[in-house]
Nucleic acid binder design. Sequence first.
DNA 1: CACAAAAAGATTTGATCATATTCTGGCAGT
DNA 2: ACTGCCAGAATATGATCAAATCTTTTTGTG
Lengths: 229, 229
Amino acid sequence: MASSEKEALKVAYGTENPKRIPAHQQVYFKLREQILFGELAPGQPVTIQGLVENLEAGMTPVREAIRRLTAEGALEFQGNRRVTVPTPTPSGIEELIYARQAIEPELVRRAAKIITADDIESLTKIDNELDAAITRGDVGAYLRHNYAFHAKLYAVAQSPILTEIADGLWLRFGPSLRVVCGRIGTQNLPDEHKETLQALSVGDGARAAEAIRQDVMQGMQQVKDSLNL
Amino acid sequence: MASSEKEALKVAYGTENPKRIPAHQQVYFKLREQILFGELAPGQPVTIQGLVENLEAGMTPVREAIRRLTAEGALEFQGNRRVTVPTPTPSGIEELIYARQAIEPELVRRAAKIITADDIESLTKIDNELDAAITRGDVGAYLRHNYAFHAKLYAVAQSPILTEIADGLWLRFGPSLRVVCGRIGTQNLPDEHKETLQALSVGDGARAAEAIRQDVMQGMQQVKDSLNL
DNA sequence: CACAAAAAGATTTGATCATATTCTGGCAGT
DNA sequence: ACTGCCAGAATATGATCAAATCTTTTTGTG
């Protein structure tokens, strides 16, 4: 995600000055959230008119948001003017596994070089909230905090292109993750975050990268397994 | 638009069935070509109204195409509603180098497992045309055939997600590549394609992947070097 | 009086909407 | 099953409104 858009996101959620945000961006962010955190299930059709009512927006902005998310792989063009949330396939998951383990550890390596104590503190805080969500079995909160942890790492890495790619990957498996959690709950979910934080705090980028790789692989493995049920 | 032009478009973009192509897709493909093959220079502003006239399309389709290309990183949101072709930065190029050498060799490994003699033949044909373009110093043809070679490899690999990512990367450095060729001509350009083809024809996926990695790295290195001039 | 900063106005461009048109898929009737 | 028709959804247009940039004029100061 481009940094100017991160600004827009902040504004959209009221943490910053009241600058006007174009409707098409607001729609984009809302729809993105719904996809990432599971309001929309794999295979579910997404209609323009439905969103116009649902999000109380005009037709043109909705259209633009859909095009954008389609380009990011979060939605799928069904040929006949139809758009749906993509249904995961084993080979698709394989591709995502490769891509994530190729990209995310590199982002962590980059983050490790320039991470500050403040960053580590806020990562720790996110991870604690994540633990709390797990113990109380709150799937929605788990998904949000888990993403927040990784997203914060990306932000630290200051590598906008790799971050956009990684974010794009999240959009592709987000709906599946929700399904997995619906099946197995929040127990037994991967969490190599402690190890990652430990390594980052002593400046060991290689170990941190490997820990995240483990985290990623375990999570994707569960998605893969849940497909064969 | 005259129907003969629509026909031409269908042929140009390989849509066989006689279905009508939505205007927003036509605009997308046209604009994508212009970005990939250098009609648009880095830093150049892209206006909606300009494209409406230039491509003889309506406003909504142009808008949608721009959103899509922005999502793919081919265009950049300039905060104040403005959209431009991104200007390359050294750190951006570094990111692209990492991403390409992480993704493309994997695609070649996958391609190597299932490539057919026909595929190799058509790759060879493309590479010959590429050589011809180089010897006659035809930059436009070089860019097109070079892309065609890589794109054909992606197609063989049958990995749609990794292919989309790789295509996205091309869109990001395409404009820079044009600039490089404008500076140094078509001589001294990387070409490990022969080695790749050789390895593929004997089923040596690892060697083919490494050859492509070399090709990618050499090309990106030249882009990087040309930035410091 | 010269110059530059600021204000006002004009113009270009983007955002959004209402509306007309085109297409798809389902359904009725054969 | 097949065919033709219809409702509803998507696509596309052009008009309208709003924002940003550029241009010109005004104003203030040394």
